[in-house]
Design a binder for these strands. Structure first.
Length: 376
DNA sequence: AATTCCCGCCATATC
DNA sequence: GATATGGCGGGAATT
């Protein structure tokens, strides 16, 4: 239970100070994923998620929207989503890539230039009577705010997809959010529009990062922060495409309070922050059945060994530092793969799936603490 | 000073 | 008319 181990405090750290990190979308997303990354078909209710994760409902919308954009979730009805799992990512990305290529999303190679001509994909609008005016004499805003479905056009979801398309199409693998915003937006957008768009990209980048689809780094020369795609590259080329980057994270701890709905920015938590390792790298473990929380896991017991699996992670205020769930009992990746391999029709998709399996293996062996495999 | 991005007001869409 | 969604950007935390 809530060990009074308030002493877990990270070394030289301030005791109880409001920390932005523990309230980040990325962390919330990690918790969300670990909470629902299960086989159970249980529909996900927004209210339920909000209360379980201890956040206001508004935040759930943010997460859910980007997760849906990548196929992990599917909106089923009002206030209800269904879990599709990580296994749905490859297909979703493949579609995004094709869609992106169909558009101009690849025509912005190397340096600048080449807008991407936003405009949503298919002519989704139910005609809506006339109107085919693409865009009048470059008249920006106003006069269209009325009855337009700008809603969807400015949604986090679509932005997410476009951001992802940037990586999937084209060969650049390092993009700064500002560049992305500039590309996805017209070229001549002024500050305000830009700033807002970048803010949204930060949000998106955080959740995509928590899924390890992207990673934050710095541009070799510029030292400027930028993001790199970690998922698989669009086409199924041979070699090169780095699949996963495993940085320092080794023990996963779901630290941070789960119920903190009410505390303002400059308030200090009544509790201590028990987190030690920030991000939770729990991704490609999709359909793995059980996971057990434990310390130095011995992935030696290949057989079932129905280890008591405390399915529910308690990422409460003080997540037991020892908590470290690892997938176990699933060692035969080949069979696992065949068991869960979606029935992809095209060879391309099969390849994509293969890449993911590769990532899972890597991730698994890393977490299992076997040998620090280090990828390039 | 610059960058990152949480928080929640409040416009819209739906029920 | 109530409730569900979710833009949007101020401004505080971080770097």
């Amino acid at each position: 239970m809530t060990l009074s181990s308030s002493t877990i405090q990270e070394s030289a750290s301030h005791h109880r100070t409001y920390s932005r990190k523990q309230k980040s979308l990325g962390l919330l997303c990690s918790n969300f994923l670990s909470l629902y990354n299960r086989d159970g078909v249980e529909p996900i209710g927004l209210d339920d998620a909000a209360s379980r994760l201890g956040v206001e409902r508004r935040r759930i919308y943010d997460i859910v929207n980007v997760l849906e954009s990548v196929g992990v979730l599917a909106r089923k009805a009002k206030n209800q989503y269904s879990w599709k799992g990580f296994g749905a990512i490859p297909k979703a990305l493949e579609e995004l890539r094709e869609e992106g290529l169909r558009e101009n999303f690849h025509t912005f190679d190397s340096n600048n230039s080449a807008k991407v001509d936003d405009e949503d994909e298919r002519f989704s609008n139910p005609n809506t009577g006339s109107q085919q005016d693409k865009s009048n004499p470059s008249s920006k805003l106003n006069l269209n705010v009325f009855f337009t479905d700008n809603r969807r056009e400015k949604s986090l979801g679509l932005l997410t997809q476009n951001f992802v398309k940037l990586f999937l199409c084209s060969n650049v693998d390092l993009i700064s959010l500002e560049e992305a915003a500039r590309i996805l937006l017209g070229d001549g957008q002024n500050s305000s529009i830009m700033r807002t768009k970048v803010r949204r990209l930060y949000d998106i980048a955080n959740v995509l990062s928590s899924m390890n689809l992207i990673e934050k780094t710095n541009q070799t020369e510029n030292r400027k922060p930028a993001f790199r795609w970690l998922g698989m590259r669009g086409k199924s080329e041979n070699g090169s495409l780095s699949v996963l980057n495993l940085n320092e994270s080794k023990k996963r701890t779901f630290g941070t309070e789960i119920t903190n709905i009410s505390f303002k920015r400059n308030k200090m938590a009544s509790s201590v922050e028990g987190n030690s390792n920030q991000n939770t790298k729990m991704q490609w473990q999709m359909q793995v059945k059980h996971e057990n929380l434990e310390n130095g896991i011995e992935r030696s017991d290949f057989e079932k060994g129905p280890k008591q699996s405390s399915k529910s992670y308690q990422f409460g205020p003080f997540a037991p530092v020892s908590v470290q769930d690892t997938v176990r009992q699933v060692r035969d990746w080949e069979s696992l793969a065949s068991t869960y391999r979606p029935q992809y029709h095209s060879q391309a998709l099969r390849d994509l799936f293969a890449h993911y399996m590769e990532a899972w293996k890597t991730w698994y062996s890393e977490v299992a603490g076997k040998e620090p495999i280090q990828i390039s």
